[in-house]
Design a protein around this nucleic acid. Structure first.
Length: 779
RNA sequence: GCGCCAGUGGCGGAAUGGUAGACGCGCUGGUCUUAGGAACCAGUGGGCAACCGUGGGGGUUCGAGUCCCUCCUGGCGCACCA
């Protein structure tokens, strides 16, 4: 995943890009066509906030950071094609995005509507549902407010079913990410039922997964944001209810206020009251429910509190109420005696016949709100006329450039105050018009950047042929935090573009690898102040702060963060330990998908390994025998297998195993053919060091092809055969593959250890797994 | 509450149902010395031993860290989803 240019590369970036670089270098050596690009996710709020804080311009701040981070990345010796580089904040990227916006609009996948949206009061902008975590903005942590605003949306819900189903085809994605997306899409099937409002000709729509319990409905609950509420109550009354609701711990207490109007029960000749209830969500289903207290925990609690009738419609013991399981339907006229599923079918067909309801599949996922009320983003190519109507621009009218000269000091969106940019005369109608001042969510930028990497110079977003030939991305590496943000949006984009352009690609990323985070020990003083690990020393068995001699306490290893002062700067590490040791450490201690704890010992031993390899190859050549050759072939095989499986920690173990063997036997390969093979295999992991040694030994600077493994040399003739008695290991014997069972048993029975085990018992069975193990069963 | 993943030495971690602990860190003892952020040699799961050992308890199997059931613990995600 491409980085956000926040200022400096951090260790997480280093790990991410080293993993990818090892794969890329390996595949290049194999002769595969590899595209290994880098770019910048360069629009976004941090730039704007930083610009205000440091009195600079978001563009200058961003471009500066890019320059800095690029030079830092280059120090890592990454084999990146910098020709493909771009930043999403530059015109030559976002102008094409504006074109895609127009495509989406024309395809009916982008639309504008008034909606209740998430408002981040700190960043002063709207956020998509995916960007609100536990009711708080994902970047600011501020409590999100609900606002009714006219906003642009992308119709991701059109693809809900496909986004869900196609997860099954993503065989090379972590199960965890797929589960998260599945939960987010949130498909459930049930029915939509129309309840007639008493004394009115209007109806209230309700979604339920349990239409079989309709006869047990004794009240209606609506969300406080439901249209019926604003129609019935005045603003003051609504505000009072909201205040009331915000006072209780919404997760626990179910409270409500009667709207003092009723609904007609669709099956029974009776009226049931409508309540505004705090536990009814406005963003799920229709924002309205029917309450069936006997068979739903929440409804039960609510009914108890407000003394509403509880009518049992599924046969169960009274003490089991509320009972939400399966059972025989009772008290429900023609449904009586049916099971849950049969009753659901029966009642839905009844509703359909009577036109008071229908079968309904409901999705939790909502359309993607993409409008942001901030300056530093891609302008939305739309103009508004004075009568309030709007027009999406033609592609010929693009690009809509983001102006540079803005005043960011005022509150709100700087573009709103920039009349000379905002006001135009529409060239089509000659009428006065105003540009859209909302910009696109930065997740739009990152939803198609991998396509742009195929050709960043093209005068249109992409070439259809090229997309068909080269996508999906074979290996995509990044953190799991994007599981339902970037990774879901990109899947939607790929599918939408497929339908618009007739592409043959369904999914953007064939294999997803989620790398673990890097952690480091934390330390704090007795006052609770965080202390940098390198300022801590041990004195008389006590951890103390070197400067002030204060006693400090060691905390758990946690994700590196500036606030906890446990950050390690890549620049410093590269300067003291070099590229190769840094790369080795990034992959050595843990599997790449798990946490990696930063330790001083770890980076030091990585450095020692690089020295050791260097020393090894400077030794004079000795005789080489077949066994050495076999070990080298095994090494090639193992490294290759482990790179392909992302088991990079095992690659490091393979390196140690090989050099332990060679040095133990004092076999030195120097400039032999075997050295060349070993160095080629080291190249993806240690490009700098292996190139250097290669130049010294062979006077060539480039590695040729990845060596083909001589499979016949992997065959092991001599084996150590484990001998078990009663399934427990007793001893092992050295033998050769293909031994004759009868002959070897004679030998085995003479071994003291075996004799002692068997004693005078009778051998009743011998299990010989040829060349693997022998198990003797006695009685 | 629901879902997913994990639990193996002092630590990070290896083990297509077939010798548990590869490899590394740390530690112990030693060697060398151009005194290094070294290097090298030997050792390092527990136990004197027989033996015991992969979170607990069952099961399948000739054989289980690995498969099944169940419980416990930890992590992550979702969570009033009607």
């Amino acid at each position: 995943m491409f980085p956000y240019p926040s200022g400096n590369i951090h260790m997480g970036h280093v790990r991410n890009y080293v993993i990818g670089d090892i794969c890329a270098r390996y595949h290049k050596l194999k002769g595969d066509e590899v595209i290994h690009p880098m770019g910048w996710d360069a629009f976004g709020l941090p730039a704007e906030n930083a610009a205000i804080q440091f009195k600079t311009h978001p563009r200058d701040w961003t471009l500066n950071n890019i320059e800095n981070m690029k030079s830092q990345l280059q120090k890592l010796d990454l084999d990146i094609e910098w020709d493909r580089e771009f930043a999403t904040c530059n015109e030559d990227y976002y102008r094409h995005q504006q074109e895609l916006f127009i495509d989406l609009y024309n395809a009916g996948l982008a639309y504008k509507k008034d909606a209740l949206v998430n408002w981040d009061p700190v960043d002063q902008t709207v956020l998509a549902n995916e960007q609100v975590i536990d009711g708080k903005g994902w970047r600011t942590g501020a409590s999100v407010e609900k606002k009714n605003l006219s906003q642009w949306f992308f119709k991701i819900t059109d693809y809900a079913e496909e986004l869900l189903n196609d997860l099954d085809n993503l065989k090379l994605w972590p199960e965890k990410v797929k589960t998260m997306q599945k939960n987010w899409i949130g498909k459930s099937s049930g029915a939509e039922i129309k309840f007639k409002i008493s004394g009115s000709n209007e109806f209230l729509n309700i979604f339920t997964t349990r239409p079989d319990t309709i006869y047990g409905a004794t009240f209606i609950g609506v969300s406080v944001n439901h249209p019926l509420v604003s129609k019935t109550l005045n603003n003051k009354a609504i505000k009072e209810i909201k205040d009331e609701f915000s006072k209780v711990d919404g997760e626990k207490d179910k409270i409500g206020v009667s709207l003092k109007i009723n609904c007609l029960h669709p099956m029974l000749n009776k009226e049931i009251p409508i309540y505004v209830a705090n536990f009814v969500l406005d963003n799920y289903g229709e924002g309205a429910i029917f309450g069936c207290p006997a068979h739903d925990e929440r409804d039960f609690e609510f009914a108890k509190k407000y003394d509403l009738p509880i009518i049992k419609v599924i046969d169960c013991r009274d003490e089991d109420l509320p009972y939400s399981g399966d059972g025989k339907i009772i008290n429900s006229e023609f449904l009586n005696g049916l099971s849950k599923d049969a009753a659901i079918n029966e009642i839905i067909s009844y509703f359909t016949r009577k036109q008071i309801g229908k079968e309904k599949i409901n999705f939790k996922i909502r359309d993607w709100g993409v409008s942001r009320q901030r300056y530093w983003g891609c302008p939305i190519p739309v103009i508004y006329y004075e009568d309030g109507s709007y027009r999406v621009l033609d592609k010929s009218e693009l690009p809509v450039l983001l102006p540079y000269d803005v005043n960011l000091k005022g509150k709100g969106n700087a573009l709103l105050n920039l009349d000379k940019w905002r006001e135009i005369i529409c060239p089509k109608t000659n009428k006065k018009a105003y540009r859209e001042t909302d910009t696109l969510d930065t997740f739009v930028d990152s939803s198609w950047y991998y396509i742009r990497f195929l050709n960043n110079k093209l005068d249109k977003p992409f070439e259809i042929e090229q997309v068909n030939n080269l996508l999906p991305v074979d290996k995509y590496i990044g953190g799991i935090e994007h599981a339902i943000l970037h990774l879901l949006y990109s899947r939607f984009f790929m599918k939408a573009l497929r339908d618009i352009y007739g592409l043959k690609v369904d999914e953007p990323f064939k294999q997803l690898f989620t790398q673990g985070m890097i952690t480091h020990k934390t330390y704090r003083t007795s006052k609770g102040e965080w202390v940098m690990p390198r300022e801590v020393v041990i004195k008389d068995g006590q951890l103390i702060l070197e400067k002030t001699r204060e006693i400090v306490e060691e905390g758990p290893s946690e994700k590196m963060s500036k606030s906890k002062k446990n950050v390690i700067e890549p620049d410093e590490i590269l300067n003291s330990f070099g590229i190769d040791a840094t790369r080795i450490f990034m992959i050595s201690d843990s599997p790449p998908d798990r946490e990696l704890e930063w330790t001083d010992e770890g980076i030091q031993s990585s450095k020692n390994l690089t020295h050791r390899i260097e020393r090894y190859f400077s030794q004079k050549k000795t005789d080489i025998d077949l066994e050495v050759e076999k070990k080298v072939e095994l090494f090639i095989y193992n490294i290759e297998t482990n790179i392909l499986n992302f088991s990079l920690n095992k690659c490091v173990a393979d390196i140690y195993t090989l050099f332990n063997y060679l040095e133990k036997r004092k076999v030195y390969l120097n400039n032999s053919e075997l050295s060349s093979k070993i160095l080629t295999c080291l190249f993806p992991i240690l490009p700098n060091l292996s190139s250097l040694i290669c130049r010294n030994l062979f006077n060539i600077s480039k590695f040729k092809h990845w060596p083909d493994v001589k499979k016949d040399l992997l065959y092991k003739d001599k084996i150590v055969l484990p001998i078990q008695v009663q399934g427990k290991l007793v001893t092992t014997i050295d033998t050769k593959k293909g031994y004759i069972e009868k002959d070897i048993l004679k030998l085995i029975y003479q071994l003291d250890k075996v004799k002692n085990k068997i004693q005078d018992k009778k051998v009743i069975k011998v299990i010989n797994v040829q060349d693997k193990i022998i198990n003797i069963i006695v009685y």
